[in-house]
Design a protein around this nucleic acid. Sequence first.
DNA 1: GCCATAGTTCCGAAATGCGGAAGTCTGTTT
DNA 2: AAACAGACTTCCGCATTTCGGAACTATGGC
Lengths: 263, 263
Amino acid sequence: MADTASRKSSNPNGSGVQSLERALDILELLGNSPGELGVTEIGPSVGLANGTAHRLLSTLTYRGYVLRNPRSRKYALGPKTLYLASSAGEQLGPLARPFLEELMKVSRESSNLAVLDRESVVYLDQVPADRMVRMFTEPGNRVTPHSSGTGKVLLAYQPETVVDSVIRRSGLPRYTSHTITDLGRLKEKLAAIREQGYGIDSEEMEEGVRCLAAPVFGPDGNILAGISVSGPAGRLDEGRLEELIPHIKRIAGDFSESLGGSD
Amino acid sequence: MADTASRKSSNPNGSGVQSLERALDILELLGNSPGELGVTEIGPSVGLANGTAHRLLSTLTYRGYVLRNPRSRKYALGPKTLYLASSAGEQLGPLARPFLEELMKVSRESSNLAVLDRESVVYLDQVPADRMVRMFTEPGNRVTPHSSGTGKVLLAYQPETVVDSVIRRSGLPRYTSHTITDLGRLKEKLAAIREQGYGIDSEEMEEGVRCLAAPVFGPDGNILAGISVSGPAGRLDEGRLEELIPHIKRIAGDFSESLGGSD
DNA sequence: GCCATAGTTCCGAAATGCGGAAGTCTGTTT
DNA sequence: AAACAGACTTCCGCATTTCGGAACTATGGC
């Protein structure tokens, strides 16, 4: 999807600041690469002359977004990007509220909003079910991506290099007898999710808990977040999940549209 | 330090891409602001005409780094920044290695590298002490910033709005009788750290464990990470800490220089 | 339903960023 | 040890791109 050498530069709304877009291309390329990259690798990959790539890298380095290894003279993402990230998630919560509420009403199960942050899935917001027995997730909680419905959805729409790097760090720990602990099988699941547009966690994290998740996309087509419903396996059985699939897909789609569309 | 309305634009090495620097100013302003901001708030804050700010915001929004709330027409950081962050920390580890090793040799205690990520301190790398009794921290571990030496150092050099936003999310949970649980007292500590150039955790996280930490800065003067030594309080007593202070400051300084200097 | 405020678009001017080529540097080969 | 190859960095003139003020449009309060 996000081919690193993509050439579309201007945005549909007409204006697009070229040098900024190119710098973002470089940042994203570095983000998708496991190790350091040299100027001659970066330039051609984003379709720029080496001189131009170097100038952009210079500015990014000066500002701390890119780290230059003086020994190898190669570049990698810098910790300043983490600093930015620290306030990003918060903002999405309020926007998601109405959609989470609708999702809860339709499913009568707890609904959640989550994003991928480094090697883990972070829950940003929740609307708890209006029932006595319900799932409860604290905002800020982190879980491993491979074992949660939202996590798998978030992975499914990342470039493969990101998936590899995330899994390398998070591992594939087993929580229940249903947990996917094989990378090959996980990747098959991810492909299926891309195919179907939703993901399921069937007691992979905790016995007796199921979860249904769908992706939320930004205007550029990249995944921004995932929304999900989770509840006791007794209530969320095969049939019930089937019923909910069109609803969660529609609501996730509406949410995406509300972020990307003008109004 | 990082005044949001700073006017220095070009980097010492001569070239600096203006539109990129301005876009980064906007991102950082959004990162330091708790809520959404409108164009007329953003433009003047970074010293730009509204039209210019709007154009940059357009591109950032299109690329997913900034989120536009269609209801309020205001802007906030988008989740794409999280996605970038996911690969950032990793790269710092290899660069830090020699300095962590030197720090361990000099102190004969475990030395660590950590950064601030969202509301928590993440340990990226460690060189364990060459002794039987030693602290051991798993890379990837997260702790609350207020209770660790490195955490306090990392906070000390952030803009106050970031400190507030981090603490609002992480809270000030008490772990031991020494934990700082009052925001006022924490801020005094942070001021002292800025004054002295190092921070101490004296059994605030875990009884019997002390830690000494110092900041690592990037070329732009912003803090990138913290390095620390931690060990049993019995060995790291008042006098021993005093001895180590000049060493950790020097090593942290060397590390900063190695990141910022050319070679 | 009007007015004020804020957000968005337009347009000509010129500054800024572009990219090829020249200049260094590092580390490898003979 | 010296020369070479490959990669990184700097330079410079040209023109593309970005700038910013002003006009325009939408929104929300009165």
